[in-house]
Lab assay of single mutants.
Amino acid sequence: MSIQHFRVALIPFFAAFCLPVFAHPETLVKVKDAEDQLGARVGYIELDLNSGKILESFRPEERFPMMSTFKVLLCGAVLSRVDAGQEQLGRRIHYSQNDLVEYSPVTEKHLTDGMTVRELCSAAITMSDNTAANLLLTTIGGPKELTAFLHNMGDHVTRLDRWEPELNEAIPNDERDTTMPAAMATTLRKLLTGELLTLASRQQLIDWMEADKVAGPLLRSALPAGWFIADKSGAGERGSRGIIAALGPDGKPSRIVVIYTTGSQATMDERNRQIAEIGASLIKHW
């Protein structure tokens, strides 16, 4: 067993022997301040990774656009098919120029040779490549099948209805392509620590998230040296922004954090800054 596999296998073990965790309302004060600064709703939840206990939450059962955070769930569904012998990570998928959609920095470079399922998941999570996500959605049967996968996990809230990039439209009061912070946090925890996926697939999923290259201005910008984070960000229309993450000190994750916002007129930089400040408060009061 590799060191990384050992780390993920012992996530519940280490967490069980940690000192009790206590909620700190100071972080919620910052979440509410972010709402004021952005002029928009902000949803927040913080779960203990081992027990699933909610440590703090704000608007945990209000719907927010998922945006690209759905790509972690998508690759979880792909990995479940791999575990069941219905898919192979090494299978190569070929596609054409007509398949390319807006923001496809990886797939646009491989029109000639195609990409493997493993490479597509890596591109979808680490670079948020939209064509990679659409190609992977095709392998599982489309958005409705991802929703069905989530329902089978016990998540009857999260739903995907459309493809990239239309799913980022974020129309107010439109339930399409949305989740709730509580539902997303619980589902992410199941994917990373539950028995739904094999140990190898859980490790692969967290490795992809740990290698995320496009979430630097968010929670990662607030992390002290030595902290662990595996995350996936999302951005959408109407001032929408979000991030889902597993993080913790001492090089291992111990909490799940989900943050979503929508309806702001603020710039992307300002949305990023507010999420980073929430992260800084979380870490300060850990």
Rank of each mutant, 00 (worst) to 15 (best):
F6A: 07
R7D: 07
R7N: 11
I11F: 12
P12I: 13
A15Y: 15
F22H: 15
H24Y: 09
H24N: 15
L28M: 12
D33T: 15
L38Y: 09
L38H: 07
Y44E: 01
E46Q: 10
L49K: 04
K53N: 14
K53C: 08
I54P: 13
I54E: 11
F58A: 09
P60T: 12
P60D: 15
P60F: 09
E62S: 08
E62A: 09
R63N: 07
R63Y: 07
F64W: 03
S68H: 00
T69Y: 03
L73M: 11
L74K: 02
C75L: 05
C75P: 01
S80V: 11
S80I: 10
E87P: 02
L89N: 04
R92I: 14
H94M: 14
H94G: 10
Y103W: 15
S104Q: 02
P105H: 06
P105Q: 06
V106H: 08
T107D: 01
E108D: 11
H110P: 03
E119W: 02
M127F: 11
N134C: 04
L135C: 06
T138Q: 15
T139P: 03
G142S: 06
K144S: 15
T147Q: 09
A148R: 14
F149N: 06
L150Y: 08
T158M: 03
R159V: 07
W163K: 11
W163T: 10
P165S: 07
E166T: 11
N173P: 07
D174K: 03
E175N: 13
E175H: 14
E175S: 12
T178Q: 03
M180K: 14
T187K: 01
L192H: 04
T193W: 10
E195R: 11
L197H: 05
A200N: 15
Q203V: 15
Q204V: 11
I206D: 04
A211Y: 09
D212V: 04
D212Y: 03
K213Y: 09
V214N: 07
L218D: 03
R220W: 02
P224G: 07
P224N: 06
G226W: 06
G234R: 00
E237A: 15
A245Y: 01
A246R: 02
A246M: 15
S254I: 10
R255N: 02
A266I: 06
E270L: 10
N272T: 08
R273V: 10
I275S: 01
A280C: 12
H285V: 09
W286F: 06
